[in-house]
Design a binder for these strands. Structure first.
Lengths: 202, 202, 202, 202
DNA sequence: ATATAATCGAGACGGTACGTCTGGTCTTCGC
DNA sequence: GCGAAGACCAGACGTACCGTCTCGATTATAT
């Protein structure tokens, strides 16, 4: 897990509980309002109930540590069933919504977005490993939707995708994830985007 | 502007250029990636080319200073013309998009959202003075749209509003405001939300 | 007093009490058994009741600080009256003995001798400014003694000097300065060195 | 040699080379300018090319280790021949001078004197086992000298002893043992102390 | 032969101290 | 009075080291 494992030639083993205690501490503190730059390995160690030494031994910089934290966040993404466009979109949006509802995960991601400039490597990794695959999956579903005749072929699919995920992303960014029921909200968004808000001209 | 003005009995006058230099410094540093908690009055003074003393004389805390910075951000909001729903929405969205494109303003707001927990007073003010009025205006337009028969009456208007503004808010949050043409993007969003992405059943 | 004084263009003045508090702290701690290498500016600051900052502002290294401490030790050396060899020697030895009796001074010098290798510059200064002049004075007195016919001309004067001062130096080195009466002990040493311990062959 | 040897029921034997390597390391480092408090078992282990474990297994504290080091220093003391006072004194002083010339031994003793307060037990042992017997021997010789009519009976023998040994002790304390020829210097000191530096009144 | 037992090097661990840096306050100077 | 310079205390940070504990490998004794 840690970037740089020394060659094992003997000596005491690292306590695996320390790793998770530290990562938990990071998530808790960020969820409590800390910024990524504001956090220090020292403060994290204190919160984790671990000696500074043990933290610095594992991660030289905050960057490396946050990478491992990100790894923890990156849960397996849901696979669309292929039953139908509406259902496939629901699977994807529900997956996103569930992450948004997870206070610790969404706080971490919000912080990462806000401080992307300070942690370019971290932000890049986040994009490649978390954002990109999900965006790709969404595109696949939309493409199949067009083939099936369920999605208008004359609209930029990227725009459709943006319309679908932005409400959830915006909530994550603003932290207003209180009254968010993943299942219900996903459905509502999909229905509205597919059918449109405009009144049918009689 | 400043919370506490001393009784003027003589002596040198405060240099008004100092005020704007400091506020500019804050906006520049936040746009450059600084967090609100991470900034210190000392660092700000250095960046503004002003003595620490001059900053502390004007603002006791970061909170007070940021309030004044926020004031600067809060440009007059555009008034819908009333010509038609589609046009009115375009006016509102264009106003939002223009703010999103402004690097310094959008960085400040992104930071404020990310650290809302740390600056509750500030965040409250931001909500009351910037978010609420615009949300109200949007609701007005949608209500009139329903009355005019241009907006479906069977859908929660809050959800429609959310769909309309979220793409721009999400871009602000993620900082990807590069290829954002306020006029064009606003139109695209409105069109898609009103007409829907689903193919009409033949 | 301190090596590097900044150009004064304004700003708060350094508190002179801090200087002496720190120097006192050093003397006290060394007298209490601390070694020169063992002492840290941090510990000294704590003992002096002063912030670390204030210490580091004045002295960059322990070396510089100890130089100033040494300055304090270097009290004016007594001048022989010229009345007679025995009396002149008494003046010099009494001066040395008094310094040996001073716990703080003698502890400092003992420490300095023990760690000469670690503080070569410091030890050099000590030798030049404290040891050398006194050694010179002793030589002058002995030379005059030879001229007056009060000191044997056939013995190396350096050896005589060494015999005179070593008992006091040895006591300083071993720290056994308890029962040392400067006046009485000086006399005894001089008497014995001049007259010899050997029984006159009848 | 080491305080606490485990009951032997099997297992690997301790490498005797380790003991001497460690003790050598201590003597070398002290001779190189280290203080007794400044040395740590860790640093000693590194210098000795031995694992920390092996050091701590043998000595719990620096105190215990230094005791063993002291043991090494304590070479057999020379026995006066009884041929004559002058010769007996020469034997004793030569023994002392030889120890003073030994860089490692004299550095160790100088350090021990400088830090006597920190290592009272160690210093006590040093006094009892090294200083006291030699001082006693010196007193014996002087007492016999008085009986033989070679030493003035009207002078405190302790003062005579002090005069004899102090030049060598002072050199040890100051580290100036370069140009010290044990044989020659001992003779010179004895001659001068016995015959005195004062010119015989014609 | 095969337990048993101690040594040894490597290294994790908590604790402590160090020197640096920065933040906010206070004090002095010059305009 | 204002702005600039800087002293001052408090506190955090990252590093380094110390003494202890834990582990695998090795080496010797005892069964």
């Amino acid at each position: 897990m840690n970037a740089e494992l020394p060659v094992r030639r003997g000596g005491r083993r690292r306590d695996p509980a320390t790793d998770s205690a530290v990562i938990d501490a990071v998530l808790d503190m960020v969820a409590a309002g800390a910024t990524l730059t504001g956090l220090s390995l020292v403060a994290i160690a204190k919160q984790a109930g671990v000696s500074r030494n043990s933290v610095y031994r594992r991660w030289k910089t905050k960057d490396e540590l946050y990478l491992d934290v990100l790894e923890t966040i990156n849960r397996p993404r849901p696979a669309p069933t292929g039953a139908g466009t509406r259902e496939d979109l629901a699977v994807l949006l529900r997956g996103l919504a569930e992450r948004v509802v997870d206070q610790r995960a969404s706080s971490m991601l919000r912080a990462l977005n806000a401080e992307a400039a300070t942690f370019p490597r971290l932000h890049g990794r986040y994009f490649e490993e978390i954002v990109a695959p999900r965006r790709e999956a969404m595109n696949d579903v939309l493409r199949r939707g067009v083939e099936r005749g369920e999605i208008r072929p004359d609209v930029d699919p990227d725009l459709i995708a943006e319309l679908l995920v932005s409400p959830l992303l915006a909530r994550m960014a603003s932290g207003s994830t209180d009254r968010l029921d993943p299942e219900r909200t996903s459905r509502q968004i999909i229905d509205l985007v597919l059918e449109g808000a405009g009144a049918a001209p009689a």
